[in-house]
Design a protein around this nucleic acid. Structure first.
Lengths: 360, 360
DNA sequence: TCCCCTTTGTGAAACCTTTCAGTAAAAGGT
DNA sequence: ACCTTTTACTGAAAGGTTTCACAAAGGGGA
């Protein structure tokens, strides 16, 4: 079933058929009708590859994740970003093709992906994975990463992290466990990207308070519930006795809380915890997680809009930094509202008024 | 940068360049090297659309979800299926293109998707969305749905549901709230698909125990945490006082538990709850959720393997039904292990030994 | 030395659509 | 009635790859 069959059946040229679908205004209404009827009769559907080849538009955007798909779905943060991306592509009839590094040959997959552009998450522009894209001349936008030659969308990681650490240090904590991502293999000791910026924020607060952040108090883990759980458990088993936890990701913070509970620690009375991201789950956990809010959804939607604009009009590159905000819930002893939420069976749970503090 | 440029630079024909990449054995080793070097020099990357058009292979599989992307990610079940799908596509260097019904014009998106085949989740073959696929002649496999003309992968929904309801009824419950999906608009009163089969399983058990399942005890909700929460809350507000809950989805069951806690009910002592799916989260919740286990991961991987086989060799259609298994954890008073897990702050939580009972 | 078979490589068609320049006819202006 | 626009449509090129039948060169056996 090709466009030629439809053209013959309708007694018009192939060009007319093409126009009937893509620009019906150019044809007489009755002709359009006749063509469409013929197409329907024949069960014709345009070949997407041929269309993409000729029109240089596939109607597909690629999304490149920094982690294997399994952990991507394990972390609500990515789900939220994806949702933000989807909200924009959706209204334009654009589809999403997701790629993650597990793919046996990621480079090959990236090179072969039938997409118009890429949203890259958590990878710096000079990352190896980005090269094939540039080679192909496929435009991309980077979320949570630095870029010179492309647009990027980031948040004020450093400011948010600083605010979180500052609060804990101000409350007198001196043994704070910092939970951070595992470093990608190629940047083992550099503190690059999001991880680096958040760590830098913590460190700045430590410096301000003249408190030392010892190396053994900075532990790396997988960005999953289990990762946070294990990291805290291991630190505890190693004899560390932190009174507070700073995690660069909510999901890790939640894991740490789970471990703490298992070890008989009460949160927040024995251990105060502040995460990062403010994923939807953070407000629902027991206790609700204090965290650094970032506009995750907006991150995705903004990046996508930028990319589409670049695709459509060759719009200018932009470097966007969205604000963060410290949100105090039940996993810290709230600054203004000291009531500890009642947790447990049979009781009525009341969420304390949320305390917000913009980080800038 | 086209294949022609590379051919010129390497002093060979375009066909030779193509072969150098796709079938190097046909060329002398030194020639291949020369061509590859030229390609690298020029930064050549094959155009995916042209390749797909000619070779009739895009290296992309579509995944069609039954719900808007937001709720898809909100439900760990889909994440697990996707993971199963990904585990297979991954080792073959195939990419995944995800489509969900929110897309302004789903039909158009489906028709235009540059994919080789589709894994359809939770939609019956005669669903409107499937028509454009058939029209295009794109092969597909259906997960959690019926199909005559295509392969399908399902689980023993009815058996699993029966086992869950049977247990609750055997324990003497007479006021059981059943939580089910919202029906898609086009099958409002028919009990089709997964939902229908699970409901049928419940009903069968009720019949066996000669207990009436009243209409107002079957409530429909969104398949999210909030959906389950709201459904239970509304039922409670309407004066219903169930002593047990059967949910056709874990995530809804978890939502119901949250609502129950908020209403001051203890689970399992005031309310026993059994979900369906056994998503990873089910074992982690407080209390751990009793549920009907289904091999979610396997569902995805099996379907994908089937599809790929069909694509490669035109393999025969198959209709696969995987077993389910009732798993008793903390949200029911365990049959063999009556200890109620200690829940709450500061305590040590011990998971009771899991009790397993195959549904067939 | 002759014939046949491999090896290595080529030319051109095919894949199916969109687009661009252009034509024929109808409409509009004076 | 003649010229200019506009409308409605067409023919053919272009997009970049793979594939298929075929050719040239080299090798081996008798």
């Amino acid at each position: 079933m090709t466009i030629r069959d439809v053209a013959e059946k309708a007694g018009v040229s192939m060009a007319a058929v093409s126009n009937a679908f893509n620009d019906p205004g150019r044809l007489r209404a009755t002709t359009v009708e006749r063509i469409l009827a013929a197409a329907k009769d024949l069960g014709y559907a345009a070949n997407p590859h041929a269309r993409a080849l000729q029109s240089r538009r596939a109607g597909v955007l690629g999304v490149l994740f920094p982690q294997p798909i399994a952990s991507v779905f394990a972390n609500p943060f990515f789900a939220a970003v994806l949702e933000g991306i989807g909200s924009v592509t959706d209204e334009r009839g654009i589809s999403l093709l997701t790629l993650s590094p597990l793919e046996s040959s990621l480079e090959r997959a990236i090179a072969a992906a039938p997409v118009d552009g890429f949203v890259i998450i958590g990878l710096d522009e000079n990352h190896a994975e980005v090269a094939p894209l540039r080679k192909r001349g496929v435009p991309f936008v980077i979320v949570d990463g630095d870029a010179e030659s492309a647009s990027s969308v980031n948040v004020d990681d450093e400011g948010g992290a600083y605010a979180a650490a500052d609060l804990l240090l101000s409350r007198g904590h001196r043994h704070i466990l910092v939970l951070t991502f595992h470093a990608p293999p190629d940047e083992l000791d550099k503190d690059l990207g999001v991880r680096g910026r958040r760590l830098r924020g913590y460190r700045k607060a430590f410096a301000k308070h003249k408190v030392a952040l010892k190396d053994d108090h900075v532990v790396r883990a997988f960005v999953t519930l289990d990762g946070g759980d294990e990291a805290f458990s291991v630190a505890w088993a190693a004899g560390l006795r932190p009174t507070a936890v700073l995690a660069v990701s909510d999901i890790m913070a939640l894991g740490a809380i789970r471990a703490a509970h298992r070890l008989g620690l009460g949160v927040p009375e024995d251990l105060e915890v502040i995460g990062f991201d403010d994923v939807p789950l953070a407000a629902e956990s027991l206790p609700p997680l204090s965290t650094v809010h970032q506009p995750i959804h907006e991150k995705g939607s903004t990046a996508t809009r930028l990319l589409i604009r670049e695709l459509d009009e060759g719009g200018p590159r932009e470097r966007i930094v969205l604000p963060t905000e410290l949100i105090l819930r039940g996993s810290t002893v709230a600054a203004r509202d000291a009531r500890v939420p009642h947790v447990g069976r049979g009781g009525t749970y009341r969420r304390p008024d949320v305390v917000r503090a913009a980080t800038r």
